[in-house]
Write a protein that binds this DNA or RNA. Sequence first.
DNA 1: CAGGCGTGGTT
DNA 2: TAACCAAGCCT
Length: 364
Amino acid sequence: MRATPASLASEPDLAAAEPFSERLLAWYQHAGRHALPWKVDPTPYRVWLSEIMLQQTQVSTVLKYFDRFTTRFPDLQTLAESEEDAVLAAWTGLGYYRRARNLWRAARQVADEHGGQFPDSIEALQDLPGIGRSTAGAILALAFDQRATILDGNVKRVLCRIHGITEWPGKREIEQRLWRLAESHTPASDVAAYTQAIMDLGAKLCTRRNPACEECPVRDLCAARSLGLTGQIPAPAPRARLPERDACMLVVEDSNGHVLLERRPEQGVWGGLWCFPEYPDSEDPKVAVQRLADCPETVMLMREQMRHQFTHYRLNLTLCHVRIPDRAPLQVGERSLDWFAPEELSTVGLAAPVVRFLKPTRQH
DNA sequence: CAGGCGTGGTT
DNA sequence: TAACCAAGCCT
């Protein structure tokens, strides 16, 4: 028997006494998601990458990016030696772009500080940018089969129901309790399978809406079920009304189809990505163009209204389309501006308005 | 330490 | 349509 960690002592003896993890493992053998690409070949690099991509992002979305990304960056060495822009380009469309910049930085840190080998301690993992407590636990459990614990949205939902926790799981006190519960359920062996099992249970049976309780291997342990509270757990997050913001951007094209883009600052929305230059609402667009590029003739083509929906606010965009005769010299100043030929656009990270500008059915 | 950070899916 | 959310982390 291994010693019980001190952090588990305060939570009543669940792990030792009840067959929770064993039932999950048995269910997982025949009903789990065994075909996920990061599960089929669970190297530390692939598990790490998948965990970063999966932060606040659904599996179905990640599946569209994962294989393409690992083909372009097959190992940590390749990633560490690549340009940040190439990583952002591969991440374009996935969202939360700080994840991509942190991914690139973490790869360089592992190369520099750990000789290119992924560390296998919780402290060293959490020291890498973009890796927090849960992601570190996931890497240890899934890639190294160490006794470590995760607490993601799936696990929170499962544990809230099993233990009949009716308060919002994001609340600090509740989250701390959930960590203790998650640790107490984690078995000493088969940690990789157990960790995947509890996530798969949350994804396939214990879903937010219409959970398949009849098929659940631990339904007789479920407090929410016995209390008739399954539909009300987990409690929704308290939210404020959606605010709106306004912005104006210039779409400057020359006669050869080159586009003028600006690299956005790292801290805000679309951080580090290339986007149409913003200009103040109060400014005349022609003057705004003059501030960016030295071009004598400016032809205003059209104004376009575009709404962009984020999680926490709505962005009302005014796009001002402008054509100039040829690539004009840039009036750089503080801003990071550059002209892009059409074929260059796939080599850098592009913000959503640019992606939408490139794709759409522009049949004229 | 609440709030910021994206996109696509569901209801 | 608009709200809500999905394998969280960082400041």
